[in-house]
Simulated scan of single mutants.
Amino acid sequence: MGMLVLGLIVFLGVHSVRIFAEDWRTRGIARWGEMGWKGLYSALSLIGFALIVWGFAQARLLPVVLWSPPAMLKHLNSLFTLAAFILVAAAYVPRNRIRARLHHPMILGVKLWAFGHLLATGTLADLVLFGAFLLWAVLDFRAARRRDRALGTVYAPGTMGPTAIAVLVGVVAWAVFAFWLHAAWIGVAPFPRA
């Protein structure tokens, strides 16, 4: 469990700089240049992510069960995760209506993914992992909206074509992950074959 917590501290710590230390980030970019800053940010993110994966896998070997969620919540999590994939796709497709309306769809996608997984799982490792991501997403979304207001950020209006592309990409990515990759990478099949 310690490795999981360390990974979360590193990964979410790096991703929290804009929440808690925007001025320090600005000085870091000025000192190391944008590419230097991005290189350090990426390296620390990869280290943190690797520690999360390793720590979560280790914690799952001897699970501490806190509760047993009903099957209904696992099905509900599938819907939350589908919506999360669409939101994440919308963060990268320019001029779509989802991003125009929500402004920060990726962070909202992380919120849905984490919340759904908290409902559908019941071990201590799940609570630590998904709870940490949910807390981070709540704080990051609030900080991003505050930053938008301070800077007067205006988002381009969306159109139907890019919106349809974002939805299609999200649905396809979700299906590939839900039906194949989740079982291969995480060892849990959301839709087990009979």
Rank of each mutant, 00 (worst) to 15 (best):
G2I: 12
M3A: 15
L4N: 02
G7D: 07
L8D: 03
L8C: 09
L8R: 05
L8H: 06
I9K: 11
F11M: 02
V14F: 10
V14N: 07
R18A: 15
E22R: 15
W24C: 11
R31G: 10
G39L: 11
L40E: 12
L40G: 15
Y41M: 10
S42V: 10
L44F: 05
G48E: 02
V53W: 08
L61Q: 15
L66I: 08
W67C: 07
P69Y: 01
L73Q: 02
H75K: 11
L76Y: 03
N77C: 08
L79R: 05
F80H: 01
L82N: 05
A83F: 05
A84P: 03
A84N: 04
F85Q: 01
I86N: 04
A89Q: 09
A100H: 03
R101C: 10
L102E: 01
L102M: 07
P105Q: 01
L108W: 03
A114S: 07
L118Y: 01
L118N: 03
A120G: 00
T121K: 06
T123G: 05
L124A: 13
A125K: 04
D126H: 06
L127I: 10
L135N: 06
L139A: 05
A143W: 10
A144P: 04
R145G: 06
D148S: 11
R149N: 12
R149E: 15
Y155N: 05
G158E: 00
T159I: 10
M160R: 13
M160D: 13
G161V: 13
P162N: 08
I165A: 11
L168E: 07
L168G: 14
G170K: 01
A173N: 01
A175W: 14
A183W: 05
I186P: 02
P190Q: 04
R193T: 15
A194Q: 13
